[in-house]
Nucleic acid binder design. Structure first.
Lengths: 160, 160
DNA sequence: TTTAATGCGGACCAACTTAGTCCTGTTTAA
DNA sequence: TTAAACAGGACTAAGTTGGTCCGCATTAAA
């Protein structure tokens, strides 16, 4: 588990497809055909991405969707956040510094909260270092993610 | 979103409580009282952790639960995996190398899959570097998670 | 030997979430 | 004027989740 929703998954597939077309706008139908994602779902996801400012839409005949920014400037975190809210493994870390008071009834006794901030931040950093453009590149091992430290941008810098 | 289930959250709270007692066994009731987690849920979670080999249980009067290993040797990934299955943002990366054939109907056309392997691996690594013992330590900034890395690639800050 | 405390295993349910469908607008190029 | 396309919902079926409850098995201690 610990999964993204299917819609988010779709969203990423659709965005990469769009990004491959560099600047071209695509209709929902077209994207559905290319990616095999069912059209109504495509439509729903694209609406969401448009609302979040990642896509621009053109209505009317020969309308469609296009990236609002170059793929290089769209971090993966932003995509995920747009489609399923803040990236945070726990409820209590999701709303910035102050969770709505009382939202976690264990607040008073919970000894672990402080750590989640760090963990969530780590994951956000890891995801944030990948851009949509990276996801379009054919080779999967482009970034020195785990490989012990070829460059400074190693994800998370967790290495004790 | 991208949340752990509440049960997993409970599990971690319970384990840290247990770890604080170094070697002592605790009854489910006792843990429920200390953590304010409802007893039936405590019971359910502890059963799960026992089944996964993280806890040992002693039945009968004056029984209870204890850690199966020193807290230092229990990585966070293992806890999460025990309670909600493999840590993987996407379905298709969850079952090791081969997803059950056909489980993802986009398999043929999906251009993104390779990347998920890397991303999932990254998150697993990040979580795996923290042990239960780390979560018990009072100070949250013990590990140089982000700090040694004041580089510009920070994105995550979705919610300030 | 009896008793009471404790974990074990499962069935069960209500509430919520998710994915997917569908419909009626509105906009716009041709 | 028309048809293609997005906008914004309402709606539904299926699945998941959190939580409750029960009877059984085990065991320390009285």
């Amino acid at each position: 588990m610990l999964r993204m929703s299917k819609m988010t998954d779709y969203g990423i597939v659709l965005l990469t497809e769009l990004a491959r077309g560099e600047g071209e706008t695509r209709t929902a139908r077209e994207l559905a055909e290319r990616t095999r994602v069912p059209l109504p779902s495509v439509s729903k996801v694209l609406k969401g991405l448009q609302g979040a400012g990642l896509l621009v839409s053109h209505r009317g005949a020969s309308g469609g969707y296009g990236l609002a920014r170059p793929a290089r400037e769209i971090p993966l975190t932003e995509i995920i956040t747009a489609l399923e809210g803040p990236v945070s493994l726990t409820e209590c870390g999701a709303h910035g510094a102050h969770p709505p008071a009382g939202s976690c009834e264990l607040e008073r006794v919970c000894q672990v909260r402080g750590h989640w901030r760090v963990i969530n931040r780590t994951i956000q950093d890891a995801l944030g270092r990948l851009s949509l453009a990276d996801l379009c590149a054919p080779v999967p091992r482009l970034i020195g993610l785990n490989t012990p430290n070829p460059n400074p941008a190693t994800v998370g810098g967790v290495h004790s």
